[in-house]
Nucleic acid binder design. Sequence first.
DNA 1: CCGCACTAGTTGCACACTCAATATAACCCC
DNA 2: GGGGTTATATTGAGTGTGCAACTAGTGCGG
Lengths: 131, 131
Amino acid sequence: MAVNTTSEARLEDRWRDILSVHARTMCEIDRALHPHGLGASDFEVLDILVSSELAHEGEHCRVQNIADRVHLSQSALSRLIGRLEKDGLVERSVCLEDRRGVWVALTRKGRDLHTEVRPLQRAALARVLNA
Amino acid sequence: MAVNTTSEARLEDRWRDILSVHARTMCEIDRALHPHGLGASDFEVLDILVSSELAHEGEHCRVQNIADRVHLSQSALSRLIGRLEKDGLVERSVCLEDRRGVWVALTRKGRDLHTEVRPLQRAALARVLNA
DNA sequence: CCGCACTAGTTGCACACTCAATATAACCCC
DNA sequence: GGGGTTATATTGAGTGTGCAACTAGTGCGG
């Protein structure tokens, strides 16, 4: 039982740690990106789109593919993409081969903004995670 | 520069890891506690109150002391305590020695609910963190 | 070919969160 | 001791999120 309670305590400590690091990093990223009109999740989606472009040369990416990589509900992601589109950072278009799906593609503006703010996000990561 | 880019990539990977573990654990805890009318943050506050009771024998705790331990804004915490009070789990009273502050004390119901759901939260932690 | 189950994405709704402003109380220094 | 500053907690406004319901499209089996 003693073992059990100490292992439980370790788990708790670890969880507290995760909570703390998560909160501080999130906050730091938001602070760095907010002046550019982006939140942490917005950047994450932009980042995924860029890396996806590099990976398979395609300019577009299904919403589904983004959803797999980001920890957001379908609806939150849908609205997030809606906001990015409204800001002219991405474009949506129906996927012809499966008309249930929609393609999401970066615009020039989106790509530019990403290259602009990427260093800021990385710096924020470094500040908190290397502390 | 090569060093720089790989260390950056490590940072990114670590961040992705934190994000993933955080999301899954949060979700698991919420799922376990929701049937009892609590969210993860609610439980965390209850847990803090219990441990504070054990620590210095006092039955009450300043809002400030809770705020130091939980990653929420002042206003979010105030409303959270308001909800707990509405549900009869805690009681608020003005702090006599410093009348700016307010005491927060567990009710019997709050203590009971905590002992009831604590194992569930621990189990959720174990499920995700030991995976 | 039609129906039926399944998948992809969006929308309505409720709710918790943050930021900024506010109220009240305490501290402090002249 | 009174006026300015700081500390503590609450409230108002705006926003993002998750759940559940919904629409549209696919594909399989009879």
